[in-house]
Design a protein around this nucleic acid. Sequence first.
RNA 1: GGCCCCAUCGUCUAGCGGCCUAGGACGACACCCUUUCAAGGUGUAGAUCGCGGGUUCGAAUCCCGCUGGGGUCACCA
Length: 497
Amino acid sequence: MTQNEQPARTRFAPSPTGYVHIGSMRTVIFNWLWAKHTGGRFLLRIEDTDRNRYVEGAEEQLKESIRRMGIEWDEGPDVGGPFAPYKQSERLALYHTYAEELLGKGHFYKCWCTPERLKQVNEEKQARKEPPGYDRRCRKLSAEERAAQEASGKPHVIRMAVPLDGETVVNDLIRGPIRFQNALQNDPVMIKSDGFPTYGMAAIVDDHEMQITHVMRADEWIATSPLHVLLYQCFGWEQPVWVHLPNVLGPDGKKLSKRHGDTSITDYLDKGYLPEALLNFLALIGWGYDETTEIMTRDELIERFTLDRISPSGGVLNIEKLNKFNGIYIRQMTPAELTEQLLPYLAEAGLVSAEPTAAERARVEELVPLIHERLVVLSEAPELLRLFFETPTTYDQALLVPKKLDAVTTAQALTTATAALRDAPEWEVATIEARLRALTEELGLKVGDLFMAIRVATTGSKVSPPLFETLHALGRDETLARLERATASLGSVSAGP
RNA sequence: GGCCCCAUCGUCUAGCGGCCUAGGACGACACCCUUUCAAGGUGUAGAUCGCGGGUUCGAAUCCCGCUGGGGUCACCA
């Protein structure tokens, strides 16, 4: 791109309040891709400055989610780095040092207004149809008043004294300059009364300290970004490149949230969407390489990812397309690889033991080719493979008897087929096929009718992997037993009135 | 409501003044292959580039207005 491509330092800075949703993961991916593309570093920083929203285990879950996607941070919790700690609750002293500095320069001021007063001010403003916001009372305190408040020792917050006029320009890389009137901004709280910094304070101090070169974050941060620019100006620090990413939207075109259902990245992973497929798919929401290329490996993505190709508009997550991608990636795996991935799902369904034995593993691997190209998502495997582990118990007569045939004819056909298969010289796919095809002529049945009757008789369903392979995998004894059972169920019908 | 962002087939997108009678992908539909389902192959439909003005010899591409959608207005991030 036109931008210099010096090694970038990017970061994903979530607050540990819950799971990582699919939109956040897309943000992670963009940050990570850009760092890797430029040969830079991707950091993870935990923004736990709101003790009211602390969620037990959220940090671990968050790290786990990112790792399951095959993404590692070069600096951050667990791995450390030159700017440790990477958790804001452990960096409190730093924020205070900087707050003191700006307090001294007059860019920050202490505010003793209580939440109750703030609320009241807002209500009054609302009543007067004025925009809500702090009235800056403490900013206008006289020296004596300030000294009095100071002496009282009452709890206070520290606010930034936003310029009363002029404008602040946020230079967003993909949107260009965005202008904001300073007069319309509020004096934001920088340090809360509990001594913790707010996002605006902590993020800017840390981004500067950690030498972040590109701040890539979700769209919704645009509105508060002028405050961040202002803070950089107060400190006299060089700003990072601002890159506000378009949102990943729900089917209704609104910001993705819990009400849209499975928005947690782990839900997708648990369902059996492959990390590679998810990565590829997510990279394509809000970014595109060229006119035709869509399927790209991790390395190709890294190689090709540039900021100038990020689009400014949000995109709806197209699950059908994700499914397609997942199928493509599944088909790229070897049977052995697929087997490994499938075992946990089969174990959960009770089809193999929790600690699969070598025999079970081998059995699954020989079955895998039968469903390989039919799998969309890993979790579908148990249903597709169940017929090889459990004998169908009931037969739907309507399914078993081909449309143009009756029960008696079908039973006879099945009986003949059973005999033919019993007599087959050996149990090979080609042999089974030869026998059965010959049968259609002998019986004068249509290929589809005979095969379908056998399919339903042996699998209990009209949909299955290819018949001959299926019978072969079932084994002769099991095949014959199922055939006989099905035939018997038909007999009871034909014996009826 | 104020401020801000966005606007190409149903969806994800290509397009950065002439290559566009707008390309690709998913989905849909049809056909081929075929023992079912898939996979694969071929093809069809689908976007007056949100609307209206400009600028220009020429606009999806630049400018303005409108409309629509979204975001944000906390001692949350």
